[in-house]
């Protein structure tokens, strides 16, 4: 388990002290079957998932319609950011697109550890920010017609 956590993209650049704190926030691993619902928008965001294998759909369900798939995230990605900022509620739904596994981190512990140890908190936030920036850039590209004749 700790090996999986150490080799996850989130833990890249963590020194051993920060890794130890990260490990202390772990609740272990979880496995989902294809189609299983993982997060529901509006629910309290108490966990952060570090995907280790498989694919997960981020989706939203407009009233009276079937879910709209917005993005696929994969092994190596982070699932769920809403635990970082108030009101600590999931903004979207997430479902397993394939069988998938993740390391589960306790959001309250992560936030408390960040407050208590700003060095750890800063390392964690920098890493999350990097991954979030990647996701934002990809979302921008997704919004333009990247493959169109005039891209």
């Amino acid at each position: 388990m700790s090996e999986k956590l150490r080799s996850h993209r989130v833990a890249r650049d963590f020194d051993s002290a920060s890794l130890a704190v990260l490990e202390s926030c772990s609740l272990g691993e979880v496995a989902w079957k294809k189609g299983e619902c993982i997060l529901t928008s509006g629910d309290e965001a108490t966990r952060c998932y570090l995907l280790t294998s498989g694919d997960v759909f981020i989706q939203t369900t407009p009233p009276g319609r079937s879910p709209t798939l917005l993005q696929t995230i994969r092994g190596g990605d982070v699932l769920g950011w809403s635990w970082v900022i108030p009101p600590y509620r999931w903004a979207f739904d997430a479902c397993a697109a394939t069988d998938a596994t993740a390391i589960v981190l306790d959001a309250a512990k992560l936030l408390a550890a960040s407050e208590a140890d700003p060095r750890f908190g800063y390392t964690l936030m920098k890493r999350l920010f990097t991954l979030l920036t990647d996701r934002l850039q990809a979302t921008r590209l997704q919004l333009m017609d990247l493959y169109g004749p005039r891209a």
Binding site: A97, L141, Q142
Partner: peptide
């Protein structure tokens, strides 16, 4: 694909996102 229309159940997102993995 960018947009999951036509009952698409495969990967959604731009192709560049597949490269780091």
């Amino acid at each position: 694909v960018d947009a999951a229309t036509d009952n698409w159940r495969g990967s959604v997102g731009v192709v560049t996102r597949l490269i780091p993995l």
